[in-house]
Amino acid sequence: MLQVRGLNVRYDKSHVVFDFSVEVEDGKLLAVLGRNGAGKTTIIRGITGLLPGASGSVSVGGRDMSGWPAHRRTRGGLAYVPSGARCFQNLTVDENLEIASHATGGDRSWTKKRIWELFPKLESLKNNMAGGLSGGERQMLALGRALMGNPRVMLLDEPTEGLAPVLVQSIGTLLGTLKSTGVSILLAEQNHQVALRVADRAAFIEKGRIVEVLPAARARDSEVLHRILGV
């Protein structure tokens, strides 16, 4: 379970995220939806502990991680999949997975072997430099790297951005599978259709504030979806 209370984020003097509070229960997925610049990435990075200008409390599985540096939060079961399919470009695919394998949050059920089963394409590329992979392959690698830490909570920043429909579909399926194993997921997306298909609830963000939280079923054709995302 992920609990965030009163998250505020400032970049130098500009206040970007205001009093963000959410709870994501075990096996549930919260979609965080908002336009460009609404503050989705900043919310996620604020939760990871990577932003010095963030305040508020974060707990994972009941353990209060407020004030912890990012690496400890990760080791405590909080995985972050940044936008843009970020990987260590100068490391091999294999090394990109190995480097995350010490972070054992919950059980140790995720192994490299299971990542290869999940993404067979990656195994055939395991000795290639990550920098030479396609965008889709790098996104699989970024997901695989996060899973190697056996997270209880995953924060995903636009994981389907720029991917082919087939891959978007399989990432959706993967998120469904992860939910069924009890992982709590916070998913920031511009692609609300994909997000709402796997989400349990949706939080709508405007100018750094939550303006509405709705069950996914009601969010799909809600007034707020039309108003905020302009669809």
């Binding site: 990871t48 690496h71 990760t74 990987c87 100068n90 490391l91 090394e95 480097i99 010490h102 972070a103």
Partner: peptide, 13 residues
């Protein structure tokens, strides 16, 4: 890894 992306390395644990 730190040469390439220290932030990501931190978030990797």
């Amino acid at each position: 890894a730190a040469v390439a992306d220290p932030d990501l390395l931190n978030a990797t644990g």
